[in-house]
């Protein structure tokens, strides 16, 4: 276990270097001139040239990469080209907002998806399973902004239960804040429920049909006892790694959901800075999202390893 953790932690810097190279290479691909893009079509050639020097764009790419990476690692993230504020404040602020939304979605997702997966798995090949499986498949395939729009039409336009914008007013009470976050969170939950439930269902079917579950039933335990004592843990433990993958999906889904609900999160920031060609903001945002994703996957793997005694204690040599 400790060796696993050390190995995985050691791999992180390696992957980060690769990720940063990718991000930097991507931002280098920009056709045309960043300085020109910032100043606009009418700006004079000399003004553009001056801005290029000011931004350091006249130096070789390799130098800029090393400078940028060094700056990123030491927390000097620079200023936004367009918003003229420190990137660090901007990104951390937006990250916090996004994490709040993601957390709410996650908290809703886990019980719903696990319950649905268990119900489907225990009743596998029966009507309940088919309904859950097909519904999960349908919802999981639908882009989050589509479900978001449909939720908006139903709950905001027709029923007028919830606000259409996710922007939380500064003086909002926690309940009001929750109201604002509920629809965007729900669109993310709907997106991810199907996949997670599918994994839980599969491991539940395996557990229900396992020799140990059958043996327990043959010993005179009731179905409910077998499910509670043997199926639950064996079905949910493998699903933790599926949850990790889904969290990635959830992070990817933030972009469209934040745009749809006008939510000031990191996904919206990524999109905006990309459109504005705001390089420092864009590079940092992409790096932060990449790191976040890596940590999520690592976390899921660690949780899985802690929960499963076979992995935790190592497989006995035969």
């Amino acid at each position: 276990m400790r060796r696993f953790l050390l190995r995985r932690l050691a791999a992180i810097p390696l992957t980060l270097v690769a990720v940063s190279a990718l991000v930097f290479a991507a931002t280098e691909l920009i056709p045309g001139d960043v300085a020109r893009a910032i100043l606009g079509r009418e700006a004079s050639e000399s003004a553009v040239r001056a801005l290029r020097v000011q931004l350091g764009l006249d130096r070789p790419a390799a130098t800029r990469y090393v400078d940028w990476l060094g700056g990123f690692v030491t927390g000097r993230w620079g200023d936004s080209y367009t918003l003229k504020v420190p990137v660090r404040d901007l990104v951390l602020d937006r990250l916090g907002a996004s994490l709040l939304l993601a957390l709410l979605a996650f908290v809703l997702l886990v019980p719903v998806a696990v319950t649905l997966g268990l119900v489907a798995g225990i009743n596998h090949d029966r009507p309940a399973d088919r309904v859950i499986s097909v519904t999960g498949l349908t919802f999981g395939a639908t882009p989050e902004f589509v479900t978001g729009v449909i939720l908006l039409v139903v709950f905001s336009v027709k029923l007028r239960w919830l606000p259409a914008s996710a922007q939380i007013p500064p003086d909002a009470s926690p309940v009001e804040a929750l109201n604002h976050l509920l629809l965007p969170a729900l669109s993310l939950v709907i997106l991810c429920t199907g996949y997670v439930a599918r994994h839980v269902r599969a491991s539940t079917v395996t557990a229900v049909e396992s020799a140990y579950a059958r043996a327990a039933e043959l010993r005179g335990f009731t179905r409910a006892q077998v499910v509670r004592r043997h199926v639950l843990r064996n079905a949910t433990v493998p699903a933790t790694s599926a949850l990790g993958v889904q969290l990635q999906f959830l992070l990817g889904g933030l972009v469209a959901v934040e745009l749809l609900f006008n939510y000031p999160g990191i996904g919206a920031l990524l999109l905006q800075s990309a459109i504005d060609k705001d390089l420092p903001t864009l590079q940092t945002t992409a790096m932060v999202l990449g790191i976040l994703y890596m940590l999520v996957v690592l976390g899921a793997d660690v949780v899985y390893r802690v929960l499963d005694p076979r992995v935790r204690l190592g497989v006995a040599a035969r």
Binding site: V19, T27, L29, Q248, F249, L271, Y293
Partner: peptide
């Protein structure tokens, strides 16, 4: 595998935003 690991860090949409927005 190392290269794939690095690319996979970015969900399709985030990678797409990065590339498409910048390349036009």
């Amino acid at each position: 595998m190392r290269v794939l690991d690095a690319i996979v860090v970015f969900p399709t949409i985030i990678a797409a935003v990065l590339f498409v927005a910048l390349s036009g």
